[in-house]
Design a protein around this nucleic acid. Structure first.
Length: 161
DNA sequence: GCCAACGTTGGC
DNA sequence: GCCAACGTTGGC
């Protein structure tokens, strides 16, 4: 669409972390249309990314926190919209501060694209010189939604090929 | 399982 | 608006 600034932008790459005991790659495999909304992000920086930067067509590394490995690739099928789990008092992600008129928290939808041939572990990524600046590998980095550069993306894909 | 590094909350 | 207290994450 002309005139829509984000539309004309190049595809971007992201990494989403998930606790496999909460929501795993295999949960995504068995989800309807292998699609899920990315609920429960309760960190402002990650929220800003979901709300403002993640766009339809972008690609996402799915990272298992416990396993400490990237396990698959997804694509974004819906860009930022209010995280409805924050409105539900029975939901574990309930946040009374977030109002429907002015939502605090946002989510996107992602769809499974393909599993990596094998998981790319944090351990093996760390010594790779090209990946040294990668957000995931920085000390104290706990962001659950983070950008990945195209070169980092390609390096990791090549590694697991 | 411990503890350092963060982010958030709340008292002042 | 500062900062101590607290909760959570993640490296080891």
């Amino acid at each position: 669409m002309l005139g829509c600034p984000r539309m004309s932008q190049k595809k971007r790459y992201w990494l989403f972390k998930s606790e496999p005991s909460v929501f795993s790659w295999s949960d995504l495999e068995s989800a309807p249309q292998q699609t899920t909304y990315w609920e429960g992000v309760r960190n402002y920086q990650a929220r800003n990314t979901l709300r403002d930067d993640v766009a339809v067509g972008d690609e996402v590394f799915f990272y298992h926190s416990q396993e400490k490995a990237i396990v698959g690739v997804c694509k974004v099928t819906r860009s930022g919209y209010p995280d409805h789990t924050a409105f539900d008092s029975k939901n574990k992600y309930y946040d009374p501060k977030s109002k429907k008129e002015s939502p605090t928290w946002y989510m996107v939808d992602i769809q499974l694209k393909k599993a990596l041939n094998r998981p790319a572990t944090l351990e093996e990524l760390k010594p790779i010189a090209k990946l040294k600046p990668m957000k995931l590998l920085q000390k104290g980095m706990r962001l659950s939604v983070q950008p990945v550069t195209e070169s980092e993306w390609q390096t990791i894909l090549k590694l697991t090929n």
